[in-house]
Design a protein around this nucleic acid. Structure first.
Ligand SMILES: [Mn+2]
Ligand SMILES: [Mn+2]
Ligand SMILES: [Zn+2]
Ligand SMILES: [Zn+2]
Lengths: 143, 143
DNA sequence: GTATTAAATGCAATTGATTTGCATTATCAA
DNA sequence: TTGATAATGCAAATCAATTGCATTTAATAC
C-alpha cells in the first residue's frame, strides 16, 4: 500500500538507535533512489556531515542489511558492493555494462521457485537475477 | 555434441601458450568439476606444483575468463570470487547458505530475455540467476 | 637442434575495499 | 538527570586481487 517511511521511522521500527549518521545515510539513499556504493554515499554525504567516516557507513550498511533495510548487490566486474533500500516491490536489475546504469526489472518468476524447491528438496530463501547488456544510449554513442 | 577437451587442446584452440601452470589449473578445474576459488585451486595444486604462485593463478583465471574458458561467479556474502569451467550447457546455480554446496540448475528462460531486450531497448549480453536456500542435508542436521 | 622474440611466471610489493580495536561520545530508557 | 549500552571517530589491520620487474619459457623460424 504505502512504501515510504522517514529514516527515523525505519530505525524505530527495527529498534535501532536513531543517530544523526544513520538518518543521513538513509535520507540520501532514499533521495537518490538507486543502488549506491559506500564511497558514493560517503562523498555525497560529506558536505553536510564532515565528521561522518567511511567506516561508519560500512558499519551501518551492514546493520541495515541484517535488519532488512538495505540489500547488497554484487555487480559483475565491479569491485565495490552496491546497496539499495529494500522497497515493497521485489525486483531485479538490468545493468548497462558500458555506462553502468542500473534499472529495476520485474521478477519474472511465478511458480518457478516453488517447483525448484520441491524438485531439489531445498528450502529456498533468496534469489538474484541480474541481466547485463548495452543500453539504448550507449548503443547510439558507439556508432 | 562433445564437451570435454584436454587442457592443451583448450589452450591451443584459443592460441594461448601451453604452460605447465595453465595445464595444471585447467586439469584441476576439470577434475573437481565445481566452482573453485583461486585459493582453493592454489592449495589443491600445490603439492604437484610447488612453485606455482597464487598470482599466477589469478592472472590465468583472468586470461581464461577473457577467453571464455572460465566464468567468474560472485556469491552473496562470500568475499572471494569463484570460477568454473564453461561447459556447453548454459546453466545457473542453487547454493546452500548453510554448507556452501553449489549445484547447477537449468536456465528457466525461454523468450523472456528477448522480450526484455525489446521492451527496454537494450542489447542483452549476459544474465545471472542464483538461487539461495538450505539443502536437504542441512535442514536435517539443523533439527 | 639453435636462435629469436614475445609472453608467462616467480616473487615481492602494492592496491583498494572492507573490517576492526579502542577510546570517546551519543542515544534512550528508567 | 543519570547510567547502561550501543554507535562513532580515528587509525590500523585485514584480505582478495593486482602489478612491476627480473627471469624463464613456449612458440616459431632458421
Ligand atoms: Mn533496484
Ligand atoms: Mn555450474
Ligand atoms: Zn549504458
Ligand atoms: Zn547445505
Amino acid at each position: 500500500m504505502h512504501d515510504f517511511l522517514f529514516p527515523r521511522e525505519i530505525l524505530k521500527k527495527r529498534k535501532l538507535k536513531n543517530t544523526r549518521q544513520r538518518r543521513a545515510i538513509l535520507k540520501l539513499m532514499s533521495a537518490e533512489n538507486m543502488p549506491l556504493s559506500a564511497k558514493e554515499i560517503y562523498y555525497k554525504i560529506k558536505d553536510n556531515n564532515p565528521h561522518l567516516k567511511l567506516s561508519t557507513i560500512y558499519r551501518n550498511l551492514n546493520v541495515f542489511e541484517k535488519n532488512n533495510i538495505v540489500r547488497k548487490l554484487n555487480i559483475n566486474n565491479v569491485t565495490e558492493s552496491y546497496f539499495e533500500l529494500i522497497k515493497e516491490n521485489h525486483h531485479h536489475h538490468l545493468i548497462c555494462i558500458s555506462c553502468g546504469h542500473i534499472q529495476d526489472i520485474e521478477c519474472p518468476f511465478d511458480d518457478y521457485l516453488d517447483k525448484l524447491e520441491k524438485k531439489n528438496n531445498y528450502e529456498v530463501t533468496d534469489h538474484r537475477l541480474t541481466v547485463y547488456g548495452i543500453c539504448h544510449q550507449c548503443k547510439k554513442d558507439d556508432k
